[in-house]
Simulated assay, not measured.
Amino acid sequence: MFSTRQLILDTDIGSDVDDAMALALILGTPSLELVATHTVYGDTRLRARLARRYGALAGRDLTVVAGTAEPLSGREVWWPGHEGTLHDDLESETFAPGSAPEDLVARLQANPGELDVVAIGPLTNLAAALELEPQVAQWIRHLWVMGGHFGADAKPEHNFKSDHVAARTVLTAGIPTTITAIEITQQVTIGADLLQRIRAAGALGAALGADIEQWWAYWKETWNVPHDPIAVLTLSRPDLFTLSPRGRITIADDGLSTFAPDPTGTVRIVTELDTAAAAEEITARIVAASGETDGDGS
């Protein structure tokens, strides 16, 4: 349906299960070619091993580079403590040497204007890359971000709040950017029916299903919001979304984000989505990543 897009995924995989869901979605989407995965925020080496493990479960040898651990803002890292606990022998998973910001600069410099970046965690790696090489802002084809809150009752959102310094640096750098914020993502939920389809999808689905249930137990819920997969869908399935006109983003010191329309700006935010189609597409692509046939017939 859409031409193949090469992308780099920047992720804090391992806490909220939606990062792992987003990675699986990418691996199950033929129109997306994952060039590299970068980890950010907290124990980025553990996150890198977990990304490698999910790649292996999908039969993929992923290039993964660990990134910046500490937010530029100095804010304490939020760490639930269950990261990777359901995956045996994670220490055996190896990842590429070097640092994610340096890897990002090198890949963009070698392929200017050809790579999309999907950032679904704090924006620390991207801010560090811009510090190393300001031309990064011109080399990124498009930046797709999960973060912020632009609704009537807006509050500081986790990714922007965790490193408001990085968010401010990246989102005012002039990079063509699409942001999917939580007032949009919270319209979609993954419940027991969709979990059953995911869990039935081979080794990848079983592992992801277990992590989903662990996340549900952590919050004492029987559903979760797939924030990060929805941000990926803005790239792979733009037909499911409505976007604002171009504008500019302001990030306060507490991480609160505001959007102001401005035809000279480079940022657009998602204003509407097809919720039913988004939930179905997320589930179907995760199942496809496992190489299994969806029992729902999708």
Rank of each mutant, 00 (worst) to 15 (best):
H82N: 13
E83V: 08
E83K: 15
E83S: 15
E83T: 14
E83L: 12
G84K: 11
T85C: 12
T85I: 14
T85D: 15
L86M: 07
L86S: 07
L86Q: 14
H87T: 15
D89G: 01
D89E: 13
L90N: 14
L90S: 09
E91H: 00
E91C: 02
E91M: 06
S92I: 02
S92E: 14
T94F: 03
T94G: 08
F95V: 05
A96L: 05
P97Y: 03
P97A: 01
P97H: 00
G98I: 03
G98Y: 03
G98M: 03
S99W: 12
A100I: 09
P101M: 03
P101S: 03
E102T: 11
E102H: 13
E102L: 09
E102M: 04
E102W: 07
D103S: 15
D103R: 14
D103T: 14
D103A: 15
L104D: 02
L104P: 00
L104Y: 00
L104C: 02
V105D: 13
V105A: 10
V105P: 07
V105C: 10
V105W: 11
A106P: 09
L108C: 00
L108A: 02
Q109S: 02
A110P: 00
N111I: 01
N111V: 00
N111Q: 04
P112I: 05
E114H: 10
E114R: 12
E114Q: 12
E114Y: 02
L115Q: 07
L115F: 10
L115C: 09
D116Y: 09
D116T: 06
D116H: 14
V117Y: 03
V117N: 11
V117L: 12
V117G: 11
A119I: 07
A119K: 09
A119W: 05
A119H: 08
I120F: 05
P122F: 06
L123H: 10
L123M: 08
L123G: 05
